[in-house]
């Protein structure tokens, strides 16, 4: 009996581990394909391989793509900063204080999850143009993306901080720390991994968002809107090269994070 259940547990563990591996394969196969294609002469028919670095030389020369990349990064950073600040304040207030408004506030923070990107995009386009009289601009796109990212950041932070012991804060306050100092010296050192997670996720969501950004940026190019615009003439080789480079940076970052975790230099909030 005991041996039988141990086998079952091992089979379950192996099976679900296999499912996870297959999921990664599924998620990364198209990306590997894009990277592979970026080194090929023929983008539409990259078989058999005919390797070249043309795409990368073209990318190095193209100021449009540099501008688009910069705009994407700017949009991602601006939106992620907004999301992280708003979500940190919101999630802390809900976890820390008992208030009759808690439920309502939580629902408001989660609202954006229930509205699709496309709807956020077109509704803020019409609101800005018709009600505020604003043409498409970086600020509007940042805000529209941040609204959507806020609830993701909020969810992540609530889930990660649900077990945080707020009595630590109270203790600091009893010993006379001002609220800001208490946050800086007591709360922040513990919750920063949750904030980092929220920041990364909201950055990713805004960085390559097509459906919100497209309707709110006007004529400002970002990576996804350039891709959308170039569809009519076939995707530019530069796009493939850029995607490959971005994924290279991601891979390096992940490797560094892995090493930091492997040798227990930084635990990123994990408690053994």
């Amino acid at each position: 009996m005991a041996a039988g259940s141990r086998v079952a547990v091992a089979a379950y563990k192996g099976g679900s581990g296999l499912l996870l591996t297959l999921l990664y394969l599924f998620l990364y196969a198209p990306i590997v394909y894009v990277i592979y294609t970026s080194f090929n002469k023929d983008l539409i028919w990259p078989f058999p391989p005919d390797f070249t670095l043309d795409a990368y030389f073209k990318l190095a020369d193209s100021s449009t793509y540099h501008e688009a990349l910069w705009n994407s990064v700017l949009l991602g950073l601006g939106s992620a900063i907004l999301c992280t600040v708003v979500a940190t304040m919101g999630s802390m207030s809900i976890l820390k204080y008992r208030s009759r408004w808690r439920g309502l506030i939580a629902v408001i923070y989660l609202c954006p999850l229930f509205v699709a990107d496309l709807l956020v995009g077109i509704s803020s386009l019409l609101f800005n143009r018709q009600v505020l009289g604003l043409p498409g601009n970086m600020g509007s796109a940042m805000i529209a993306n941040a609204v959507h990212g806020t609830s993701f950041a909020f969810l992540i932070m609530i889930a990660q901080m649900a077990r945080y012991d707020w009595r630590l804060d109270d203790a600091a306050m009893v010993f006379g720390a001002k609220p800001l100092r208490c946050f800086w010296e007591v709360t922040l050192p513990i919750i920063w991994p949750a904030m980092l997670g929220a920041f990364i996720i909201s950055f990713i969501l805004a960085f390559n968002n097509l459906e919100i950004s497209f309707y709110n940026l006007g004529a400002i190019p970002t990576l996804p809107t350039i891709a959308w615009g170039s569809l009519r003439f076939g995707l530019g080789a530069e796009l493939f090269a850029l995607a490959a480079l971005v994924n290279g940076v991601v891979l390096v970052t992940f490797t560094i994070m892995y090493l930091l975790m492997r040798y227990r230099i930084v635990s990123f909030g994990h408690r053994d």
Binding site: F207, L210, P224
Partner: peptide, 26 residues
Amino acid sequence: DRYRLLLILALAAPFFTGIILRVTGI
């Protein structure tokens, strides 16, 4: 274990590649 955050971020990382390129990849 201690790699949980990394395993989850690896699920989010495909979003770094734009939707159009990823669908082209599919």
